[in-house]
Computed example of a mutant assay.
Amino acid sequence: MLTLRLKEKTFSRTFSLRNIQMNVEKGQMLLLLGHNGAGKTTIIQSMFGLTPFKGCVTLHGKQLNLQSSEHISLLKKHVSYIPDEHSLFDYLSPREYFQLLQLPNEQDVTREETFIDLFELGSYMDQPIAQLSHGNQKKTQIISQLLRPCDYYVFDEPTNGLDPDMMIILKKVLMKLRDQGAGILISTHHLSFGDTLYDHLMILRNGDVKLDMSRQETTQTFPHQALEEIYKEMNRDYYMQVERLLNDLDTTRSS
């Protein structure tokens, strides 16, 4: 299991994250939802030691020291991280970028070829990454982190820049990885993308956990409700304000 226990992360007098516990279990998919600024990316970055926080990260029961190069190497060995923003060497082609990752064996090379075919990147393998479309850059980033089988995959907004075909394919890839025993954490704004995927759901609002349930628990608590309805229910006060503002538009038009 990959676990983050975040006791406190303070940004200002008005916003902080406190008492967050997140468990990514093998063979399970954890879906993290929330508005812009809810704290999703900060939580994920904390898990990889990319931002300081009070708390700890454990991997397979071992507490990690995120200041230790040995422990960071252990984390990288078992966990792939696909951030929201591209972090590629733009002057390289996808082929050169993948070669830079130094795949260790023939099985991984075959895996690379499969993902290149799945995400239809073959025609762009020798073009500089800087000249690729946003979508093809995103596909390059995703493939680069899927090349080596890992115990856990962490995706922060993986659908940004993907067309409908690629979103469908990515969803199928995620389900395949989960079925093969990988633990997956996804943060996304696309409710329909996550609706059929998640085994566990966490919803944030302004740094607070509004919901933390398994799919079975959400099904029992919100019978026959789609993910969008569950999300709106957990943010009822916000959407009541939205409805009041929408009603004001009617008043403005009639006057």
Rank of each mutant, 00 (worst) to 15 (best):
L4H: 00
G37K: 00
N23K: 14
P164M: 10
M213A: 05
R244L: 15
K176E: 15
H190G: 13
P94E: 03
P104D: 14
G55N: 04
I186G: 04
T51C: 15
Q127V: 11
Y231V: 04
L2T: 12
V173S: 03
L2R: 10
L17Y: 04
T51L: 11
E25I: 15
I44S: 07
D237L: 14
G181P: 06
R205I: 10
H71T: 07
G27R: 05
E228Y: 11
S46M: 07
D108K: 04
E120M: 09
E217R: 01
Q131P: 00
D165G: 05
L146V: 10
D165V: 09
L191N: 07
E120V: 06
L6M: 09
G207Y: 03
K176N: 10
L103W: 01
E112G: 09
H224Q: 08
L64N: 13
F48P: 02
M202N: 10
Q28H: 14
H71A: 11
T42D: 04
K26G: 06
I43P: 02
L59T: 08
E243T: 11
D117L: 14
T14I: 06
D117W: 13
K76D: 08
Y238P: 00
A182N: 01
D208T: 15
I203K: 02
G194C: 05
K40G: 06
I169K: 14
K232M: 12
Q145P: 01
S214Y: 00
T41W: 02
Q28V: 02
I20N: 10
I72M: 13
K54L: 07
E233T: 08
N235T: 04
G135K: 09
M166A: 07
L75V: 11
S133Q: 00
L246A: 09
E25H: 15
F115L: 08
V173K: 00
G135A: 13
L211P: 01
Y231C: 03
L17W: 08
L100Q: 14
V209L: 09
D163N: 09
G37T: 04
E85P: 10
L197M: 08
G49S: 04
H189L: 01
G181L: 02
S255C: 11
L4I: 09
Q131K: 09
I203W: 02
L204E: 01
Q21M: 08
E229W: 00
L246V: 03
K171M: 09
T221R: 05
L100G: 15
K9I: 11
P164L: 13
Q127H: 07
Y239G: 14
Q216A: 14
E25S: 15
R13T: 12
N65A: 00
S80W: 09
E96K: 12
S133M: 00
L146I: 12
L59Q: 03
V57Y: 10
F222Y: 15
Y124P: 00
L64M: 13
I43Q: 04
E243N: 10
F155E: 12
Q145K: 11
K26I: 04
D126I: 04
S73W: 01
T58L: 02
D208M: 10
M1R: 12
S12K: 15
L118Y: 09
I169L: 11
A130E: 07
Q28D: 13
L185R: 03
L59G: 01
V209R: 05
M166G: 02
L4T: 00
L211A: 01
P52K: 08
N65W: 05
G122P: 03
I82M: 09
